[in-house]
Amino acid sequence: MQTGMNQKQLRRIESVTANYFFWQGLRWVPLGVALLLAILIRAAQPVITVLLMAVALALSGAAGRYYQRTFGNVRAIPGRHVRRDRWKWFFVYPLMAASLIIDGRMPSAFFVTGPVWGAAIVAYWNSTGRGRLHYLVIAAIVAASGFAPALGMIEPGKPMLNAFFVLLGVVYVIGGVLDHYELVRILGPLPEDHDAGTV
């Protein structure tokens, strides 16, 4: 242990512990790959999409067990994130869904979903302990995608929606890998041979 603990280090310890689940980046990678595959192979049949998601969820669970084995386990305080959950379910998610509906039904040169989902990513970053600065870059890229149709990069409507979901899949993969590296950096290597079961 270092000779002293400054407030920044202590805040980091608190936020990593309180949001440990969200920092386990490898959990999100299979979901991103499944989303990418579903869009890229144009999985028209729902059964393929369901199968992809089932495999992704199984791999995500395996990643969770890897974290528990390698970095340990934290039990969250029930109800600690009530405020965050309320905002998420009653404000952020409905807004995200509404933006998709708007862009699906009324395609225009400005892709509303981009900035709305970009803002949602900033809210996610803010509510899960801040530390992972790559989410600010990711949010800026997602928000900027709103201008893609206006710049003539892609047709509005379905082509833009498909491209957005590909971007989202890439975001899940890259964000997840970077989350993982951030967690590994913070938790660090074991200082000696360990037997996690003993005190």
């Binding site: 990593v16 340990g72 039990r75 938790l187």
Partner: peptide
Amino acid sequence: ALSACRSADFLFLLRLTGLTK
């Protein structure tokens, strides 16, 4: 760390603090 959760296991605290066992 413990004030931010209901409980944490020994391995997590070991990794988080960088202390020896």
